[in-house]
């Protein structure tokens, strides 16, 4: 079994706070793996370490068997990783198309052709339109400024950009944050389409969606892994009920 992502004994301290405690994970290729946990469990901190925005104090992150623990963010992206952010992270002053094209250029390793005009490049514009189509957005949105989009549209665009260039490992940090129930269902359908095609690590609070989508789940409480298993196993796990589901109920 080959692993898309392997995490070994990851630890992160913020001053006295032990935000990630000896976290180990193994995610096989093609799996949709969810990370759940109560607020403050350190889910976003974990994703940021996997993607390289935060450096762990100890431990290793392996992607496709390659140790990336000390690689900067942009190199990890070059290795086929992508992430979406809990708080929408788009270039607000640029158009939808420009945001997508930025990702396209990066995936193709093309940038730095100083003179090529991107606004009149039909091939790039078409590719950007296709990227929008994947998340069910009409290409007519390409010239709109990102700051003029609704919150739901921005969340979708965030996903569209993460999908550009067929990344082999996608980290999604609460893609449904702030979405209405209708929008959440649409997002769930989109994520379901990814299953089996690419490896997804999904952090999400919407339990209905998580249990519907995930092949397996990791439960994180106060920075520590308390359980790993299929949705059924997790649902029936005593420790999880106690530490997590119990608190909510």
């Amino acid at each position: 079994m080959s692993l898309a992502l392997e995490v070994r004994d990851l630890n992160k301290f913020f001053g006295g706070l032990h935000a990630t405690r000896n976290v180990s994970m193994a995610v096989p290729k093609g799996e949709l793996h969810a990370v759940i946990g109560p607020n403050g469990a350190g889910k976003t901190t974990l994703i940021s370490q996997l993607f390289g925005e935060l450096r762990p104090n100890s431990g290793q992150v392996l992607v496709d068997g390659r140790d990336v623990t000390h690689r900067p963010v942009h190199e990890r992206a070059g290795l086929g990783m992508a992430r979406s952010f809990q708080i929408t992270t788009l270039v607000r002053d640029l158009s939808v198309g420009e945001n997508v094209i930025l990702a396209l250029l990066a995936r193709r390793g093309h940038a730095g052709r100083f003179w090529r005009r991107v606004d009149r490049n039909a091939e790039l514009q078409d590719a950007a339109g296709l990227a929008l189509a994947r998340i069910g957005m009409d290409p007519s949105h390409l010239p709109r400024r990102v700051s003029d989009l609704s919150h739901g549209e921005q969340r979708l665009l965030e996903l569209a950009i993460a999908l550009v260039g067929e990344p082999s490992l996608i980290l999604l940090d609460e893609p449904m944050a702030g979405l209405g129930s209708e929008e959440s269902r649409a997002m769930t359908r989109l994520l379901a389409q990814l299953k089996g095609k690419t490896t997804v690590l999904l952090v999400e609070h919407d339990m209905e969606a998580v249990f519907e989508l995930a092949d397996r789940l990791t439960v994180l409480v106060r920075g520590e892994v308390v359980a790993v298993g299929t949705p059924d196993q997790i649902r029936n796990d005593e420790r999880v009920r106690e530490a997590y589901l119990g608190e909510d109920a």
Binding site: H74, A77, T89, L90, V91, L94, I101, A111, G112
Partner: peptide, 26 residues
């Protein structure tokens, strides 16, 4: 011309949101 090139787009994007630019791989 630079303003409309790849390079210009990249600089503008980095000015607007540096995190996004690193996240896509630049």
């Amino acid at each position: 011309r630079l303003r409309k090139s790849d390079f210009g787009l990249l600089l503008k994007a980095a000015k607007g949101n540096e995190r996004r630019v690193s996240a896509v791989g630049f």
